[in-house]
Design a protein around this nucleic acid. Structure first.
Length: 264
DNA sequence: AATTTCCCCAACCGCACACCC
DNA sequence: AGGGTGTGCGGTTGGGGAAAT
């Protein structure tokens, strides 16, 4: 026995929405919200529609701040870059394009962008450009020579259990990027995951860098590259200077996302 | 002018996952 | 633990307008 259908298909209207239906749905949602149940919503709103159809109509068309119309060159680049890295995860791609829906992006890719790329032979050239990610800007603070860094731990270091490093709470809007000592390590770069405000650092140095960072109380997830692969949380894959601005796959969904580089 | 073909995109379908009991 | 239900997602369809013949 299969699962029960979400609605009685014989008694629901299908096909294009009329302006009256749009108005009824919009009015109801603006006054009452979804009530946490799309299935029950059409009856309450006086609509002879399937709940899934109502949800789709709202999310793809009626919702405020939906952007209709042509895609910009910058949006093309973002779609291309993300598609290249993560494939057809349209909801993820759309989340990086304010006002665009997954359906929009999917349709645009299938009908226009794919052909455009095939016929032009040249992929967008500025795919290393970091997409503008629609999240609250992250306030960054840096230690400067006038602000002394935390006391450097002395050897021998005590081992730190990576799992004991706490995840940065989502409510925190700022954090401190802790630089490596410039005299010793002049080209340290960290990356910021704007999805969860975590910070990742990398440098062309070895185990002594690991030890230095391991003994700082950062309070947010961190990961090392070229330095032994020790991570504050789960191992993050493939972040390197060459893929800044690209999607980064990870075994941990909290650290998966688009990274931008912050150099100091 | 009539017909056919192409193209776009709104909407549907079914599956997977999350959540609740 | 597992079954039922709602939600979210990606793939696909089909109606209608535009372009081509």
């Amino acid at each position: 026995m299969g699962r029960a259908p979400c609605c009685d298909k014989a008694n629901v209207k299908r096909g294009p929405w009329s302006p009256e239906e749009d108005l009824a749905l919009k009015n109801y949602l603006e006054r009452h919200g979804t009530g946490g149940n799309w299935i029950a919503l059409p009856q309450k709103a006086g609509l002879k529609r399937c709940g899934k159809s109502c949800r789709l109509r709202w999310l793809n068309y009626l919702r405020p701040d939906i952007k209709h119309g042509g895609f910009t060159e910058e949006e093309d680049n973002i779609i291309y870059t993300l598609y290249k890295n993560i494939g057809s995860r349209w909801s993820v791609i759309a989340s990086q394009l304010p006002g665009r829906t997954d359906n929009d992006v999917k349709n645009y890719w299938n009908t226009k962008l794919k052909k455009k790329l095939l016929t032009s032979s040249a992929a967008p050239t500025n795919t290393n450009k970091v997409p503008t990610i629609p999240t609250t800007p992250i306030k960054q603070e840096y230690y400067s020579p006038s602000v002394p860094p935390p006391a450097e731990p002395s050897f021998p270091f005590n081992a730190i259990d990576p799992l004991s490093v706490p995840m940065m709470p989502e409510s925190i809007e700022s954090y401190i990027v802790v630089p490596m000592p410039e005299a010793s390590y002049p080209s340290v770069t960290s990356t910021v995951n704007q999805n969860n405000n975590s910070c990742i650092a990398w440098a062309d140095h070895g185990g002594d860098i690991d030890e230095y960072f391991m003994n700082l109380d950062l309070g947010y997830p961190y990961e090392f590259f070229n330095g032994g692969g020790y991570g504050g949380q789960e191992k993050v894959g493939e972040v390197s200077p060459s893929n800044m601005g690209s999607w980064v796959n990870s075994t941990d969904s909290k650290t998966q996302g688009i990274y931008q580089s912050v150099t100091y």
